[in-house]
């Protein structure tokens, strides 16, 4: 098992190395990066917003319930929702969801190209397939996913407001006061660090799974599932390490 892990780790590092070779033509890589940015960004916006609004809503209701019998002032709900969203929920939940949506899609797309001999065809033409097929996806993810995470944090906070203020749990002024209290800009920095690292993990691991797929449709399905499972596991592990390092 350890040998298997080392084998895959070595292969993964080698693939990442191949990816950074000089592009055959920058304009082609640029076009592909733009296409991926639209795919990842626009394609994931609705699901990210939907999940985020509920995360914020549930967090606010949950904390309102827990603070009900305590002496902690109610405006703390806004403060807790804000910080929990920025530090943890927005980057982690968004990237876990994106691993399922974008990651599995990337693994299936590249794996399908491998099986239909598209990758072989490009190799014979002289294209650096690791570079052309993977690098634009990673660059696009590194640019777009932090943006999605920022949107997710914003929408979560709105979700918290919508679930707590109209239902009378606390007043609008209290919620906004909470949002404006004890703000530490460093937390936003932490959110973006997490978003960058998670974006790299979910795209590179998914592309690796797709790039080396062998066999038929069952193996392609397995690669797609493994892309999500490994990405999610590594994201959670990285979350813990980053939190230890930055707090």
């Amino acid at each position: 098992m350890q040998l298997n892990f080392l084998y895959h780790l070595g292969k993964y590092i080698k693939l990442m190395g191949q990816m950074f070779a000089r592009p055959e033509k920058f304009s082609m890589y640029y076009k592909e990066t733009m296409r991926q940015m639209v795919d990842i960004g626009v394609g994931s916006l609705i699901i990210v917003c939907l999940i985020s609004v509920f995360i914020g809503a549930v967090a606010a209701v949950q904390f309102a319930y827990q603070l009900e019998q305590s002496f902690i002032p109610s405006y703390y709900i806004g403060y807790i929702v804000r910080d929990m969203t920025i530090i943890e929920l927005a980057p982690t939940i968004t990237c876990l969801v994106l691993a399922g949506k974008v990651g599995s899609n990337m693994a299936a797309e590249i794996g399908g190209m491998r099986q239909k001999e598209h990758i072989d065809a490009m190799e014979i033409m002289g294209v650096n397939t690791a570079g052309y097929l993977i690098l634009p996806k990673i660059i696009a993810a590194l640019l777009v996913i932090p943006l999605l995470v920022a949107i997710s944090a914003f929408v979560s906070i709105i979700g918290g407001y919508l679930s707590s203020v109209p239902t009378g749990m606390l007043t609008s002024d209290d919620y906004i006061l909470g949002l404006r209290s004890f703000f530490v800009p460093y937390n936003v920095f932490m959110m973006f660090v997490k978003a960058f690292v998670f974006a790299f993990i979910l795209t590179s691991v998914s592309c690796y799974q797709g790039y080396y797929v062998t066999g038929g449709s069952i193996e392609l399905g397995k690669a797609s599932t493994q892309a999500v499972v490994y990405s999610d596991t590594l994201i959670l592990l990285a979350d813990y390490i980053i939190t230890l390092m930055l707090t």
């Binding site: 001999e117 072989d120 065809a121 190799e123 014979i124 033409m125 002289g126």
Partner: peptide, 8 residues
């Protein structure tokens, strides 16, 4: 390889 063409 740029001098090669292949039909799959």
């Amino acid at each position: 390889r740029t001098e090669m063409g292949m039909l799959f």
